[in-house]
Computed example of a mutant assay.
Amino acid sequence: MSRRTELHPDPTDPRVGAPLFSTWRVGTPERQRQAVEAIGRAWEGRPWPAGDLLAYHVYAGQDGSTLMHYSQWTGEQAYETFVRTHRQERVDEIDTAVPGIERVGLGRYRRYRSRERAVGDARVPGLIVTVRIDFEDGTRERREEWVDLVVKGLGDDPAGHAGLLSAHFHLSTDGGHVLNYAEWESTGAYEAAMATPSTDSWERVRTYPGLRKVTGSRYEHALGLVPD
């Protein structure tokens, strides 16, 4: 069966071969809450669908209208099997409880590298920030170089990012963008870091050739599900 967990996922788990992220638009904070409750009922009332699904987490957007889904699979084939055999019954139950959900799309990734949390740091993330970085066509190879620059910038500016617990950089399998899944101590800590004066390292990140668009979103962890 499925059970709830208060623990946040570990993006560095070596078993994760296919981290998947998707977004739903639900419209209001009340519908956010209703949708999270419906997801919990739909999953807890059924057996865990596959041993290849390690965890499934849902986050409520601070915009009051979106939900982000993060599932950790051992491989994409296992996810495709789930879609064929177990997904629709869950979708139907959720849509009956909360009609009109807009499913924006699914992103498929592989994790490239992380700025992991310090040894002994037991702080619980109060804010999750995802940043999508789109690159111009034909610049697929620049994504890893850009991530390397960001990780170096974080290392060069530890005081300015004291509230950052970890950052995990994922490359989209279609070659077009990077997704950074970052754990912050709190919203205040994130805003303080964003207000810190820019350094030479960060200017190189912001002006990197081939960079097309950067889009950030803020979330709070709303539901974690793991096999019982």
Rank of each mutant, 00 (worst) to 15 (best):
L54I: 06
P29A: 13
Y79V: 05
T215N: 11
Q34T: 12
I101G: 03
V119C: 08
V205C: 01
V150Y: 00
V26N: 02
L165S: 02
Q88T: 10
E183W: 05
D63W: 08
D148G: 03
S172R: 12
Y208K: 06
D13Q: 04
P47G: 07
V131H: 00
H170Y: 14
T207G: 12
V151E: 01
G126T: 01
Q62R: 15
V91Y: 05
P49L: 09
H69Y: 13
E37T: 13
R25I: 10
G210R: 01
R212C: 03
A18N: 02
A162R: 13
Q62C: 11
G163H: 12
E116N: 10
Y109D: 00
E102T: 13
W43P: 01
D157A: 09
S65F: 11
A35Q: 12
W146I: 00
R206I: 04
A182W: 00
Y56E: 03
R142L: 07
R84V: 04
H170K: 05
P19Q: 03
G126M: 03
T199C: 13
N180V: 10
G40S: 15
P158A: 10
D174K: 07
Q34H: 10
A18E: 02
P158S: 12
D200Y: 04
Q32C: 14
Q77M: 11
A192S: 08
D121H: 06
M1L: 06
D121P: 08
G216R: 10
S172E: 13
S172G: 14
G107D: 06
E44K: 09
G45A: 06
H69S: 10
E37H: 07
A60W: 01
R204M: 13
E93T: 14
V98F: 00
L211I: 08
A35H: 04
A118I: 09
F82R: 08
E6I: 14
P47I: 05
V147A: 09
V58A: 04
E203T: 15
P125M: 03
A38C: 12
H170V: 00
A189V: 06
D134G: 08
I39W: 05
I128D: 00
V119Y: 09
H57A: 05
I39G: 01
E76T: 11
L127W: 00
A35N: 15
A78I: 07
S22Y: 06
R4S: 13
Y109S: 01
A167P: 02
R25P: 04
G224E: 05
D228K: 09
V214T: 15
G175K: 04
E136Q: 13
V58K: 01
G27A: 05
E76Y: 11
P209F: 10
G27F: 02
G176R: 15
V214H: 01
P29T: 08
P11T: 03
R204D: 14
L225I: 08
G51N: 10
S186I: 02
G45C: 05
R218A: 14
P47D: 10
G61H: 03
W184D: 00
A162I: 05
G40C: 13
L7Q: 13
E116S: 14
E203N: 13
